[in-house]
Design a protein around this nucleic acid. Sequence first.
DNA 1: GACATAAGTTGCTCTATTTGGAACTACTGT
DNA 2: ACAGTAGTTCCAAATAGAGCAACTTATGTC
Lengths: 259, 259
Amino acid sequence: MSSVAKVARVLESFIAGRTELSVTDTVGLLDIPKSSASRMLKAMADAGLLEHAPGSRRYRIGPLAIGLGRAGRTQSRLMDRLHAMLAEVVRSCGHTGYVSVRDGLEIFGLRMIEGSHDLRVVREPGVRMPAVATAVGRALLARFDDAALAALLPDQLDRPSPAAPASRAEAIARIAHARAQGWAEAEDEGHRGIGTIAVAVADPVSGECASACITYPAAVVTAAERARICSLLTDGARRVGAELGDPVWIAAPRRRRIA
Amino acid sequence: MSSVAKVARVLESFIAGRTELSVTDTVGLLDIPKSSASRMLKAMADAGLLEHAPGSRRYRIGPLAIGLGRAGRTQSRLMDRLHAMLAEVVRSCGHTGYVSVRDGLEIFGLRMIEGSHDLRVVREPGVRMPAVATAVGRALLARFDDAALAALLPDQLDRPSPAAPASRAEAIARIAHARAQGWAEAEDEGHRGIGTIAVAVADPVSGECASACITYPAAVVTAAERARICSLLTDGARRVGAELGDPVWIAAPRRRRIA
DNA sequence: GACATAAGTTGCTCTATTTGGAACTACTGT
DNA sequence: ACAGTAGTTCCAAATAGAGCAACTTATGTC
């Protein structure tokens, strides 16, 4: 049995429900002598795939494996459908789009779809930003009501730009505004000269929620074009939301546009 | 560099933000010849750690790695605090307790704390059960409002026992009841002769939600003892909920007990 | 605290897995 | 159609991993 297969077999046993694993357990699991089992588990711990359970010689899933779950969020029916919808929007409007998720009080992009315009906004996925200071983040946080937000957000907010919310109350108000209209907008917030329009869709079966957004150079995009991008995104979100059973989009009134 | 270290290095690069990986990327990542890179990625794909991206020769995270992230859910501040709270409840009442989570329309236990009574309910963690037909599942589903539940639940429900809800409307009513009183109860539902009382707590920072429950032999536990278990669990849930910032428990009236 | 047992670690020799160059196939861009 | 790039497979050689034995550490019992 190859080393890769053994690593996989050990990790599989955690998926099957185990929370801890001993060297002796591993002898039975892999049908190898305990010296081999001991060295295999130690090597996996050294690599971050496992760690010692506190106060114990047994092993549990390690930081690398836990982090993998987060990385695995790039792949689900929600992400695939948001990606496909966003690809159509990008094709139609020519600007760059991202599929992003929230992790605590930060957001980060999982997928990027580059636009075709000569003047483009390009940012690598994976870069983390404060959720309240981005359209994407406000679209995602719009899934919480005001009371939950008051519990979740700290008193003092970082303020990466003058356009970002300065207080928790202001952040909550802007999130409530995004909730009411079904999409969020930012300009000169995460980055100067850049505008963003974002929507969020949830998959009630998996419990996931993700955002799709379009970013564009604020100076060259007209009000009519912004309205069109907004319309493309909200129509797309409603369609994906309906497919997945997201009650927010099923219940949302059809015309929710820029005033 | 050992095989385990190489596997870990490849998986780490997905955590760092990459969504796809080619054989050529791997040559650079691991500093090995492309024949070695090709075989390493193929071995990882065969083991389920990676898979081919659709319509591409590039690789992305595979089902085993994605499942691992889910398995990693056993370890978080929510799980640790629920476990500690539940250990105290088990010590006090003597019956077995579980920490469980929902995955779609099913629930499964992540951690078990065995009671001290001679007559015990013992079920291995990891066994999946329909959410609507268990106290645990109804406590977890109580986080959704009725509209969301109507979208989430199928028309036809499996009915593993006569005590389980027979229709979606009945399931929603029982979940609403659990929501109103802050805990859920089941008797003769998942298993004959077994009673369960369950609460749910969420961590708004991580987005996780988990249940803590006590199971007991229904025939030998008095009404007064059931009320005491209920009180221990809801007091414990309120304390953990307050620590984590769960608005449901912060806002909940203090006395929410069995009528 | 003494003792037996179980779990886990490490040294060292052997072997089976892994390596990597070369030759090849498949795909992509012009 | 063709050149260049990406990826695969063969096969002999190399070495990481295997596994026995001896050892250390932890645990349960009296």
